[in-house]
Structures are given as C-alpha cells and as structure tokens.
Write a protein that binds this DNA or RNA. Structure first.
Lengths: 195, 195
DNA sequence: CCCAAAAAGTTGACTCGTTGCACTTAGTGA
DNA sequence: TCACTAAGTGCAACGAGTCAACTTTTTGGG
C-alpha cells in the first residue's frame, strides 16, 4: 500500500475520530460538518469526498459488523436450524457489546437518542435484506425470489428495529423470533430439524 | 367556521395542490420549496406555517386513510380472527386504489420512486404501531406492553414496506401474513377461532 | 530520471430545506 | 370602535451537501 493510500486512510480516520469525539461530547445535532472539518483540519469538500453524509461519519467502523449477519446464516454450525442461528446472532452481538463496556454503550446511547441516526442505522441494516433472502432461499432450495423467504428475511431483520424501541430489547427479539420460528416451521415442516 | 379559517384552508389546499401538480410533473427532487410557494403565490415562511416539511405536502390527504387501519382491527366483524382482518384490510385498500385508477397509481409511482418519500410514508405508517399493539393486547386480554403483541403489530405493519419493494406485492403481503398467522396461532391456540 | 496523468485537497460560491425575527394586514370578539 | 390575535410577508440566516476551477502531491511508464 503506497503512501497515497496511507495518507488517505489517515485523513479519513482523523475525520471519523474527530466526528465521534465531538458528537459524543455535544450531541449529533449540535455539531456541524464545518466543526468536524475544522477539527480534522481539512475543508468540508474534502470531508464529503470521504463520507457521503454526516451520518456516515459515525458508522464507519460498524460497516463490517453488519456483514457478519449474512455470514452467521451461511456459515452456521451444520445441523443448526436457520432461525435459531439468526436469533442467536442477534442476541449474541448484544452480549459482545455489553462486554466492551462504556464506549459502545455511549455510542449506542448517542445513536438511539437521535432520530436521524436511528433511521440511518436501520437503513444500513436493511440493506442486507436481499442477501439474507438469497441465503435463506438457497438454504431451503426455494427459488431466489420466493416470497416466503423474502418475508422471513425482512421480518427477521426488522426484529432489531423492534428491539430498539422496546423496554426489554431481549424479550422483544425473542418474541419476534418465537412468532417467526413457529410460522416458518409450519410452512416448511422439514426446515426445523437440520437445514 | 369564520372567513379566516376558510381562507387558511384555502391557502393550505392551494399549496398542497400546487405541490402535487409540480411533483407529478417534474419529480419530487426537481421541485424546490421556493417553486411551490411561488406557484401558490405565498412566501416560503407561510408554506412552513402550514406544513412541517416538504414531504408533508404530499401526504396531506392520506393522513386519515392511515387511521383506518386501527379501526379495521377494532371494529371488525365479530368472530373474525384478528390477523385475518388485518390481512384483508391491507389487501383490500389495494383493491380500492386500483379502482380509482390513474391518479392514485401516478401518486404511488411518485412516492415509490423517491427514497425520501418512501421513508416518510413508512414513518407515518409505523406511527400506528403503538395503537395497534394496544388494540391487539386488549383483544386477547394480554397486558398492554406484552412483547408478543408488540412484535405482531410491528411485523404486520412491516408487511406493507415489504410489499413496496416486491415484484408481486400481493404475494408478498400474503407470504408475510402466512408466517405471522401460523406463528400467532401456535402461540395462542385460542386466538385463531374467534377473538 | 523526468513528465504526464491520476488522485487528494482547497477555495468559494451556490442550492435547498428550514428557522427566526420583525413587521404588516385583516378578521374577531367585546 | 378598539384592542387582540392569527395569518401572512420579507429577509436574513444556518447547516447540509454540491459544483467547478485550481493547486498540490504521488505514482507509473518511457
């Protein structure tokens, strides 16, 4: 990796870092793009060459975490039912987060207290809908555009948004998956055991 | 109703009309707030006294249509299962719309081709989540904050968003409800028959 | 080794949604 | 009739995001 790409990555990180710090201290809406550019000592145009929007500054690291979802389905333990793997993954990342402690907690508080960020987060999350649909379809031998697989993917992903607004997020996720799991097994009696 | 309120309603309507016309002709993003205010012969400040945002200009009429959803559950034929009523309502309004013909079709095309509008529409729709949750809970005698009822409400409402992006919307709605209905009946064996 | 092309950054002005402020106008109610 | 209030105006501003023209590097090929 040449010097150019290293420098590029450096300014990118310095932007994301400055943004995170300022957002955590003053709140998302109280910090302007100009403030961030100023803090990272670049111009606003440069900032927008690195990040397509103000929101994107925050979810820079989070991007690959989201990819893990599809992997959790595709590369799950053989013999594990699909929905079980999904459910575990959604509950599991939560546990990992809890372990990391205050930093991630503060980040989540920031996101969940800013409507624009909640929405953006949701959008990013939902981008995997198609990939998940295909993973599920492939898994059960259904055609790639099977409506039932699409519905399952969509509704399973929605479980996260549902948890976001609930008093007890874990219970909410479990409730959603209880519903889906039973409905899914009824629809495909073979799906509950191994595939 | 005095003259003042009549005038207020008049400018409001003239704004909404101008907006709809311009949006349909040029597309949402190609029309600025200033254009609309100009066409209705008021200032942009006045426009924002009537509508809280650009998007709101379009969904002025649609607002009460959305309210019908909760009514469809609460005031359904006695003996009809809850989910059946919901499903029918979602498929039914679609049929009504088809009958109205080109105008509504064009409107829907406009909305569905503009990400900002899709999102706004979804938001409006999802505002009924709490009301629906309570209606469902009351219906089955569960506590008002029962997670399963909340999950069902959320996921049922989501069926619309799911349909929006699907090749065959009707099939998508049916697939979602098939899943939910089975899961729901498994969770509450008494819920499938009458209440 | 040098030069041209590509990539990174800068500057400054601009659009667009949205808000705030100070002001006028016109119904309304006593 | 008169004070009050709500609607509307004009203008200036702010913040996000874009655009175009221009200055650096950095890099790769002849």
């Amino acid at each position: 990796m040449g010097r150019r790409e290293r420098k590029k990555a450096a300014t990118r990180r310095s932007l994301a870092d400055a943004a995170l710090e300022l957002f955590l201290e003053h709140g998302f809406d109280q910090v302007s793009i100009r403030d961030i550019a100023e803090a990272a000592d670049v111009s606003t145009t440069t900032l927008f060459k690195h990040f397509p929007s103000k929101e994107a500054l925050l979810f820079d690291l989070d991007a690959d975490v989201e990819q893990a979802l599809v992997a959790a389905v595709r590369e799950r333990e053989p013999g594990t039912p699909l929905l079980t793997a999904l459910r575990t993954h959604m509950l599991g990342t939560r546990a990992v987060k809890a372990e990391y402690g205050e930093q991630i907690a503060a980040f989540e508080r920031l996101v969940n207290s800013t409507p624009a960020l909640v929405e953006y987060h949701r959008r990013m999350w939902m981008r995997h809908e198609r990939a998940l649909t295909e993973a599920i379809a492939a898994d059960t031998g259904a055609p790639a555009d099977d409506p039932v697989c699409a519905a399952l993917a969509h509704l399973a992903l929605e479980a996260r948004a549902l948890a976001g607004g609930a008093a007890d997020p874990e219970a909410a996720v479990n409730a959603a998956f209880d519903l889906l799991e039973r409905g899914w097994e009824a629809a495909r009696p073979d799906a509950g055991r191994a595939s």
